[in-house]
Design a protein around this nucleic acid. Structure first.
Lengths: 258, 258
DNA sequence: CGCGCTATTGATGACGCTCAAGACCCGTGG
DNA sequence: CCACGGGTCTTGAGCGTCATCAATAGCGCG
């Protein structure tokens, strides 16, 4: 469930902003990049250096961009709350959404090398991020194996995620793609200890379609079909998965004919 | 041109195998992973350690696998000569080719973390690889920023490559996909100082189709169409690109109607 | 020299796109 | 407060691209 949203980081109700620099901020504990930040914090020796590496609370309204393709990379971004989509653009302007990201994810790593953003990141709603100076981050990473480990881990996951998407686009039909998409959302929510079977989408039908290589209308129609079959209940962005088992079979087995 | 193939590493005509361990092997100079290996070699202190890290000349016949999905990762592999395809498999057995790889490329990095292969690598013809012990490699990487740099660089490129493929599958039609594919091959050959406009495919129509999310027959038909339009000449696996300019337009511009 | 894999070409039809129209929702401003 | 407007969602009709099935030709390899 996330109607009110995971905005604990975005709108810190208990004591805004300035924490004593000597201790890890309270609301960082729930951040997916917590370990990475702690490494930064510990290795940076004195806490003031940590503050120079990580600047907190950059706010983005729905539709605002974190960075664009071609821009030079000055920061990495950790999502504190809200949600972000990343997309790449072909020469003739066609846009492909590559991923949807939520609290705890680190964005921009794959562009660290080239120092030029290869894709665009845009908030899909009110979103808050931590800014990490790329130069200082890299400096620390050089000295700290734990940070390197995290970097490789994140990038490996990214490769795997993108490869899964290729498999989906290359070998699965519309129904299978949407089923797989819903299940992967479900798993994401599970990791965050939200409900696995009922949640709100953070993105439009159009964005889902773009991501899955389908038209917006097709997404609607497949939703309708899944609903007719009793597999899901969808009312706008509120989704309920009524039969994970059968969804799995649709996503994975060509032979699931009923 | 590569009919006789880039097998200088596979069949080392001038003095097989055992080089004096004190110097870098002659035929390593042309390897794409040269810098990485030199780093390994320099940092390993004594050359005998280098020999423990990199074991040379593992030979694979056409169709043999380097590793399979699910296998535990014991080595990374540098391709010395020949060509390898990597693919992932969905639960119900559908296979998606993710990439074609040739001399100089390092395979397996993205599975280093999990220590479990996430995809399968298979030789598409006679191929030779160097085996790199994953444990020793990781050990050295921890101490050497240059190696870390190379790792992140390779993985970044992999992410970008896979994202490009998603864009291709998600937003481009058959003709655009094949045109883009041929152009990317052309660029690869350019980097190796082979001919940009005439070369031999290392993979079957079926593999190309699989990679591009199309049927084998569609690949044939699109080849035929491109040939009719005078854009390429294809006779079996021998390809000649007659108009790079116009191919570019087909690959990138929806509006290229002639 | 023939077997098997690869490539080619045709006929047919399905899946998903495009275009179109209308409903709905929500924020904004009169 | 209501009306307006833009964005989102939904549903329908028709069509195009590409998959599928099938048959044959070609090629390389043992």
């Amino acid at each position: 469930m996330m109607s009110g949203e995971d905005m604990s980081g975005v709108l810190p109700k208990r004591g805004p902003v300035s924490d004593p620099p000597a201790s890890v901020p309270q609301d960082c504990r729930n951040c997916g990049a917590y370990k990475l930040c702690v490494s930064l914090w510990l290795k940076s020796g004195d806490a003031s250096l940590f503050d120079r590496v990580v600047k907190r609370k950059q706010m983005l309204k729905r539709g605002e961009t974190l960075y664009r393709m071609g821009q030079s990379v000055e920061h990495l971004y950790v999502i504190r709350g809200g949600s972000v989509k990343t997309c790449i653009t072909s020469e003739d302007g066609r846009v492909q959404i590559i991923g949807f990201h939520t609290a705890g994810e680190l964005l921009g790593l794959e562009d660290m090398q080239t120092r030029e953003h290869n894709c665009e990141a845009r908030a899909t709603r009110l979103t808050s991020v931590c800014e990490v100076s790329i130069d200082r981050f890299e400096e620390l990473a050089k000295k700290d194996a734990a940070i390197q480990y995290e970097i490789v881990k994140i990038m490996s996951a990214e490769v795997r995620h993108t490869q899964e998407l290729v498999l989906l686009l290359g070998k699965h039909n519309a129904e299978e793609r949407l089923a797989a998409f819903l299940l992967s959302l479900s798993q994401q929510f599970a990791q965050r200890h939200y409900s696995t079977i009922e949640f709100d989408l953070t993105m439009s039908r159009s964005d889902i379609g773009n991501y899955l290589g389908l038209a917006e209308e097709t997404i609607c129609r497949v939703f309708a079909r899944l609903q007719d079959d009793g597999l899901v209940t969808s009312e706008g962005r509120r989704i309920k998965l009524n039969d994970l088992e059968r969804l799995q079979r649709i996503a994975n087995h060509r032979s699931a004919l009923s």
